[in-house]
Nucleic acid binder design. Structure first.
Lengths: 221, 221
DNA sequence: GCGCCACATATTGTCAACAATCTTCAGGGC
DNA sequence: GCCCTGAAGATTGTTGACAATATGTGGCGC
């Protein structure tokens, strides 16, 4: 796995933060459950101080909620929360497309094309079963956002919202049943960016995310 | 001033956070300057632990940048940063308008109309000099965002981005020279929301923010 | 004169103990 | 039987001291 948790130059608090973030996202620490500072500190052989720093960072990510003199709880997952997430993504990733089309860095265009070609090779996608995208650098949405060159936008989406998206994906287990269609939509978005048509790229991305959201809404009923 | 800093039920760390946030926004602590933990702790008669908690919260607001074993610095203000802020606002507040038009709560509509009527009374606005909006509940953008009813959107804008906006406003001292025009734009946006026309409301808000941004761009050259 | 290395200083990261607050549960009163 | 009161227990908030790391300065070699 080569987890970043092992990197030595990180502070203890940061390693705790990364570990706990993973466990919350994947559901090892259940959504809605209470966090006991002394218990977790013992588990990681760390002091409460370092652990508290990690908890505060998790709070600012929106992964847990703290109340003074009461303590921390992992956030609850709700249909409403998921819908809100998609509404915000629609706005921000739409803008990311518009900006990426305006910036049109040759480097990013090459990377986007390459990524798409890689996805096309996947046998799962060809079979129409799933459209698996390894998290991180190779994820379509992640790369588009990076290409926007807007640091604030990148930080908001990649370092804040995407962890919540991943949390919903893991725990509500939503494999995309729109595999081939989603892939085609991705292609069209990249084409619009290549053409420098920011308006179209934004429109397509917003429609793409809205379709995802409606798909989930239908599934939840 | 009746500062919230005096509230007793808040933790010490939270009061430090609120105080420091104000000083950074208003420039009492200069942009780009280094933060000395021992110095600040002495100044507030607090321990470094509590102060560090406040600093971490400021970091998650994007007002401070911390590096391990080096310390914290107040963020630099840059033209690029300001532009990025406006691009993100355009996307998010546009969406907020769309959602507010969809929700159309009678309570919010009344409040919006009332606020606008209040603004119209201002003599500065009538003289075409300035369009002053007290921060917080009576600010136009703040109220629109609240009316979106999307908690994630509200949190992102009101508890995160707006402090950076205020920081730029204070320190680059940008009083709107578009006073009467901005007021008219606000009116039209509210009309669109009242009519339940989310698409139009979004379009008008995006155009409104883009005009603000271009106005600032011109001023900075 | 310029650049590199070692040391001293100051700052940050981490820890364990103390104080304040909330929660729980038992007892008594109505 | 139900609700309120109050003390015990546990949890969180806060503090000051110790350890690890970076910064700045002086001296040495080239």
């Amino acid at each position: 796995m080569n987890s970043p948790v092992l990197e030595a130059h990180l502070s203890l608090a940061e390693r705790l933060f990364l570990t706990l973030r993973g466990e919350i996202v994947e559901g090892c620490i259940a959504a809605g459950s209470k966090i006991s500072e002394p218990e977790l500190a013992r588990r990681f052989n760390a002091s409460r101080g370092s652990l508290r720093e990690a908890l505060m960072r998790l709070e600012s990510l929106g992964l847990l909620e703290r109340r003074v003199n009461v303590g921390a709880r992992v956030v609850e997952l709700s249909e409403r929360g998921l819908l809100e997430l998609y509404e915000v993504r629609e706005a921000l990733e739409g803008m990311a497309c518009r900006l990426a089309a305006k910036a049109r860095s040759e480097e990013d265009l090459v990377a986007l094309r390459k990524m798409l070609a890689g996805h096309e090779q996947q046998e799962e996608l060809q079979a129409g079963k799933a459209y698996f995208q390894p998290e991180g650098d190779f994820d379509f949405h992640f790369r588009i956002v990076q290409a926007s060159k807007n640091e604030l936008l990148i930080d908001t989406l990649c370092n804040r919202l995407y962890y919540r998206v991943r949390m919903y994906r893991y725990q509500l287990g939503m494999a995309s049943p729109r595999a081939q269609r989603a892939f085609r939509e991705h292609s069209h978005i990249i084409e619009a960016i290549e053409a420098g048509d920011g308006e179209l790229a934004e429109l397509l991305m917003r429609r793409h995310i809205r379709a995802s959201r409606q798909n989930i809404e239908n599934k939840l009923r």
